[in-house]
Design a protein around this nucleic acid. Sequence first.
DNA 1: TCTGGGGTCCTAGGACCC
DNA 2: TCTGGGGTCCTAGGACCC
Length: 419
Amino acid sequence: MTVGPTILHADLDAFYASVEQLLDPSLRGRPIAVGGSAAGGVVLAASYEAKAHGVQGGMPGWRAAHLCPGLLFVRAHFDQYQGLADRVMDILGTVTPAVQRISIDEAFLDVAGSTHLFGPPEQIATRLRERVRAEVGLPISVGAARTKHLAKIASQVAKPDGLVVVHAADERAFLDPLPVGLMWGVGPVTERRLAERGIRTIGELARTESGTLERALGRATGTTLHALAHNDDPRRVAASPRARSVGAQSAMGRTRVTPELVREVLGHLAERVAGRLRAKGRAGRTVTVRVRFPGMRAVTRSLTLAAPVSATLTLTEVAERLVWQALREQDQHEPEISLLAVSVSNLTAQEAIQLELPLPPPDPWRPGSETGSARWALDRSMDAVRDKFGPGAVGYLPATMRGGRGVPDEFRELAEHDL
DNA sequence: TCTGGGGTCCTAGGACCC
DNA sequence: TCTGGGGTCCTAGGACCC
């Protein structure tokens, strides 16, 4: 029996840029960059007119401007993105409950159980694209195939604003001529390593022995790519697993390190991370910090505690200690840094019992300070005040740091994963 | 002209235990 | 006298994805 192309991958085209063109019709058909400027900052997304000149998301603004004369830099409307994307996901959910959202703007669907109601996958995909265009106003591309990997590649090939269905009999012919860079898990480094061995297409990859790939790329990457190139992809469309870590970071350009700066930035980041943990009743034992220096070199330091943390002040102190440890180990007298990051992993449920009992150890570095549970209780009461009166109402953060530099919180929230 | 913010997973070495 | 082997956890770095 032949299995049909019942896995769909639906992916909104140049999502942020398309939203801006939807909101302001004068931008339609023109090369635009969302975020950044010709002077600096980072481009969050580019319209297809700009992509034609090589402009990509994540690119410094000055470089985008250089690549694409006439590029329009547009301010992002962060408050619009989540709601529009949610409306698209609601439309996808009308044909099957098996929708796996993997980011704000893309999802897998399994329509195997829907064909008796809505027709073959081609018809379902066509109808979904029409509805998203008519009801939300955004272009969306869809790939349909027998596996997730193949469906995702098909949607990439379908872009912009297209549909590609790969029937089981056509899989090899579809895949073989495509560049390896389209495969999930092949980034710039892997692509270069493969090219050094004369492997540029998925067909060439499929003809390479597994052992050769493992030696070139490592065991996990080698076996995974070998399987995917042979269309061996057993992954199902399923609900996303719970998050395994929570983090926040702040880029600062080139900044001289001072104790005040480290304390303020880490306090801000720790409050974001710990607040999200507490909001979901979670906590984590491993604290990791990342320090990046001008020129993009970066180091990480981590520490696994005896008990999980979700108190802002405790997290701030652990992070501070790790950052200074990392800085001391650099042989620079007056170091400059360009980014600080804090993340918490080894997540567990915040046990209810810990509300009553002191957390052991209360604070590894300041004997005699408040206990962990006292800090947690204080945080919870401040969370409640913020819920009622807004995020700036109360906090550890010095007034000078609030609402100032950096990206808006609305942008951060778009990238957050559910805990 | 100098690079955002949120994540996952893998590898390798060392500590430690039995 | 100075050593096997397996398993688990921790740490640091790196590739990759959206």
